[in-house]
Amino acid sequence: MPKINGNEIRPGNVLEHNGGLWAAVKVDHVKPGKGGAFAQVELRNLRNGSKLNERFRSADKVEKVRLEQKDMQFLYEDDGQLIFMDTETYDQVQIAAAILGERRPFVQDGMTIVVEFHEDEALSATVPQKVTCVIEETEPVVKGQTAANSFKPAVLENGVRISVPPFVGQGEAIVVNTETMSYSERA
């Protein structure tokens, strides 16, 4: 695995540190008035989800890990485990539903999701950035209400609450941005 300097760490990098695999969540480069510059890095453990704040100086060397990405199809959920199938080999993989966090409700049957592996161990999964959902409950459409930046609350079919523009009604299909958890457009 390649070694990188402490000042080359970027958000999203996966590092081998203290015997575990950590993803860099947030990186701040700090130049104090006294002493050398360093990178203040917030790390998240890919195996158990714990967090760690660490300082890396430019002279520090860390192992950068490259994860293998595979497109896998979601099959079903069983006792807090999400079951995915490799569409090429038909092998099945289990991943804890907690890994997806608040994006878990957007996983739909048959959806293709990118799963990241490190030496045949599934570590994380990424939901597509845009997902189509149906509005289950919202206030009725009011004609003439076209004020800019006005939104109304809505509940989606998966139970997630988001804000939608006033012209969107109940039973309509919309596209939701899963990164920002917000309305994107009509489907």
Results as ranks from 00 to 15, higher is better:
76 Y>T: 00
76 Y>A: 07
76 Y>I: 00
76 Y>K: 14
76 Y>S: 14
77 E>P: 10
82 L>Q: 04
84 F>W: 08
84 F>E: 01
84 F>Q: 05
85 M>F: 07
85 M>H: 04
86 D>V: 01
86 D>I: 01
87 T>L: 04
88 E>G: 03
88 E>H: 07
89 T>P: 01
90 Y>G: 12
92 Q>H: 10
92 Q>G: 09
92 Q>S: 11
93 V>S: 11
93 V>D: 08
93 V>T: 12
94 Q>V: 01
96 A>T: 08
96 A>F: 08
97 A>M: 09
99 I>Y: 14
100 L>E: 00
100 L>A: 02
100 L>K: 03
101 G>C: 10
101 G>D: 09
101 G>A: 05
101 G>F: 00
102 E>W: 02
102 E>S: 15
102 E>R: 12
102 E>G: 15
104 R>F: 04
106 F>S: 10
108 Q>T: 01
109 D>Y: 09
110 G>Q: 02
110 G>S: 07
111 M>I: 12
112 T>Y: 10
112 T>E: 15
113 I>E: 03
115 V>S: 07
116 E>N: 15
117 F>T: 07
119 E>G: 08
119 E>H: 06
119 E>K: 00
119 E>T: 09
120 D>S: 04
121 E>W: 02
122 A>K: 07
122 A>G: 12
122 A>Q: 02
124 S>Y: 05
125 A>P: 00
